[in-house]
Design a binder for these strands. Sequence first.
DNA 1: AGCTTCTGCTCTCTGACGCC
DNA 2: GGCGTCAGAGAGCAGAAGCT
Length: 262
Amino acid sequence: MAKGDLYTTQLQAGLGLVSETKALLELWSPGMSVSQLCQVALDSGRFPNVTARRLRNIVVECFAPRYLVSNGAPAQHLKQVVGTVPGSDLAQLMLVFTSRANPILSDFIGSVYWQRYAGGYTEVSNEDARVFIERAIDDGKTAKRWSESTVRRVSAYLTGCCADYGLLERGLRSSRRILPFRISYPAAAYLAFDLHFAGIGDNALLTHPDWQLFGLAREDVLDELKKLSLKGHLIIQAAGDVVRISWKQPSMEALCDALSQR
DNA sequence: AGCTTCTGCTCTCTGACGCC
DNA sequence: GGCGTCAGAGAGCAGAAGCT
């Protein structure tokens, strides 16, 4: 297994951090390094309730791995829409990037959350998460076996993170109610074009793992793409198993521009 | 019942550790 | 010796239990 696919405990440095991420997006500008962002954030006075050490922790361990990868492309795109796209839609985009940075989260959502959802359960518990982690450790998905306390804590972080992004009910709970969760128009558009510009072919795109975050199988993705075609972002031709798409936005920047127009 | 104390849980923060 | 990862300490919170 590639090293990058290993599960880490990085979520412990911060869960959804939705409001903090919004603030950092506003402070960040393209080309800014991680340490520069730390300094700017500290000087901004917008984080009065955290220590400098903690703030650096948030920036280095959470914000950077999620949004400053690929030369800061995620941050740049989110910054473009942060003022106009509603908060819950923005959270879905944050979920995408947080999951990419933390494979343990995407696997958990794909294999536990949506299974429970499909099975008609109403709650996901920390115990469910713990079982998932124990199995992952047995399967060698961590660099080494985690201590019992780490397993317990990361279990809670997984469900807590889901709560921050609107998949589960918020609040202090060892078992959280499943909330209705549907991919939003901006998130669907973003993900489709993001995968396209990453070089994924039209047919492979329909079954890309990223869609599993939203519980979407191939046919569901096709439906979402059809909705996007109604908005004029693309033209889709589906004949049997073969799909061909004409992408109408020339770049992610153009798409984000369109998304922020509304 | 209403109030207080206790208990357990979550999450933040920071020091330690090991690797390069 | 700098960096990334891990885990323990402790604050904060909410619900349970106990008391009057």
